[in-house]
């Protein structure tokens, strides 16, 4: 019993890292630009298909092709930003959040149905030579693909952290988050910072999508599911905190798995949403975030 439970929790943590990664892009974009991209899940879906087709048509291993997937999604992000979101940049914050949310909703319809037409409603997944392999430590099983996914998520997290801390561009992004007007007075091109953040967010969605396509499966309508996961994690972790987002993902993954084990698989979805609502109402700064300044 306990062993099974530990096993379940480990699975939950491994999945949770993926949730964290899914939320990372959404959270960064929202934190920097105040664009709430409800279509983030659709970007994950497109990333998944990019990885899938690179595997199927070119034979590229999904982990090897990650940089390419990121690049493709970065371009998609750039196009979406230039075409749509840039038009909301000048709006006051409240209105911007709301309008971008609505644009994202329209985008959801568009991207989902384009994918449906291009690639049909079939579930697809990437099955590699190592897909089924598992290693065992202390009687706990670790599927290789999920462990690799966990590692990739961790690498993304650390790279983003270092990027924001160590590079001039990263510092410019943080300055923009703290006070965009003061940042502009430093000579920082705010428009560029926004664009870059959005593109980076899309690239991160690409990574998440690739991992989903090797760990689970992808289909055109998966977006909403992943957007909700990302939103939940973003709120759990507290805005603007990278480490918090990751911890939030793991918390959600573990809670879902525990629920599935203790109550029933049907309710794993519900528990996350409930947790989300409670945190949103009672601790809007996030479970792990510090109180707002």
């Amino acid at each position: 019993m306990t062993e099974a439970f530990v096993q379940i929790i480990i699975f939950g943590i491994l999945i949770g890292a993926l949730y964290g990664l899914a939320a990372l892009g959404l959270s960064m974009v929202f934190g920097v630009t105040k664009i709430l991209n409800i279509a983030h899940g659709e970007l994950i879906m497109l990333g998944g298909y990019a990885s899938f087709w690179l595997f199927r048509l070119v034979g590229l291993d999904p982990f090897i092709s990650l940089p390419l997937t990121m690049l493709i999604m970065a371009v998609v992000g750039l196009v979406l930003y230039k075409l749509l979101f840039v038009r909301t940049v000048k709006l006051p914050e409240e209105e911007k959040i709301k309008n971008t949310m609505l644009i994202g909703f329209g985008l959801t319809l568009i991207l989902q149905n384009i994918a449906l037409i291009l690639w049909t409603a079939d579930d697809r997944g990437i099955t590699t030579a190592y897909s089924g392999q598992v290693f065992t430590v202390l009687n706990i099983r670790f599927p290789i693909v999920r462990v690799a996914g966990f590692a990739v998520a961790l690498i993304c997290l650390l790279s983003l952290h270092l990027f924001l801390r160590k590079t001039y561009t990263g510092k410019a992004i943080r300055a923009t988050v703290e006070d965009w007007e003061a940042a502009a007075l430093m000579g920082i091109n705010i428009q560029q910072v926004y664009m870059l953040s959005f593109v980076l967010g899309a690239a991160l969605a690409g990574v998440a999508g690739a991992l989903v396509s090797v760990t689970f499966s992808i289909d055109p309508s998966m977006g909403m599911h992943w957007t909700l996961k990302a939103l939940i994690v973003m709120v759990l972790g507290g805005l603007g905190s990278i480490a918090g987002t990751f911890a939030g993902g793991i918390l959600l993954g573990a809670t879902e798995s525990a629920t599935a084990f203790l109550i029933g698989g049907n309710y794993r979805e519900v528990i996350g949403l409930l947790l989300f609502l409670l945190v949103l109402i009672f601790r809007p700064q996030g479970l792990l975030g510090a109180k707002e300044r």
Binding site: K171, R174, E178, A182, I188, R293
Partner: peptide, 14 residues
């Protein structure tokens, strides 16, 4: 309007 969440050095660098 300094950036309160960044270090003094980072502020100067910016």
């Amino acid at each position: 309007r300094i950036f309160p969440g960044m270090t003094v050095l980072e502020n100067l660098e910016l």
